[in-house]
Amino acid sequence: MLIIKNLHAGVEGKQILKGINLTVGAGEVHAIMGPNGSGKSSLASVLAGKENYDVTEGEVIFQGKNLLDMSPEVRAREGVFLAFQYPIEIPGVSNINFLKTALAEIRTYKGLPPLDAKEFLRQSKEKQKLVEFDAKLVNRSLNEGFSGGEKKRNEIFQLAMLEPALSILDETDSGLDIDALRIVSKGVNKLRSSNNAFIIITHYQRLLEYIVPDFVHVLYNGRIVKSGTKELALELEDKGYDWLKEEAHENAATI
């Protein structure tokens, strides 16, 4: 589904990603872990097409197409969904109107007719339940005055509505208490299928107890320095990142 080859990217001349290689197949859940400043969120931003990142080298193929050539909205319509670490507030734009517009755009792109109002409402109700998203919030302005947890639930609610092929969860667990984490995870687990894939960016192993990954990668200093299965996450929890840093430096020294 997604093939990242030797991806280099940075902001204002500062190199952040220094050669990422990653392949994600349909039905898979990949976790990306790593210490602060290792480039996790940058990777998410580059995949979603955030403007201020310059890709200097490498390529990203998504479902056979060159992702890096696409504008952010086309990436979204092709099925890349980013659950933002800090969802933005947009005053005056109602959540539901925004979602209706987004869904209509995506369906038009795919050559599908827009959902009729009744069907939209039915789906919206059903998916709200999935993340226990308060119906009152649906009619409020987009993220405005939402608590941290409400914002994150809103992200997963949108994910459920838009049904993307690839979802990137950027530190969705940050700022969530254990109940909210459980709810969000439950939502994600229900949405998992053999047709879609998830990249879960997180700092902590805790989220991975709820959303069990197929693969775990450790990002350090702009590179994936170690990959493994879910056991790797436990190992990281035990030992921290320092041993990997040392390993990475040793590797770098030998190269």
Binding site: E73, F81, I90
Partner: peptide
């Protein structure tokens, strides 16, 4: 960042 958020949901 507001425009980007909406872009990311498929809105041009």
């Amino acid at each position: 960042d507001q425009i980007f958020y909406l872009n990311q949901r498929g809105i041009d």
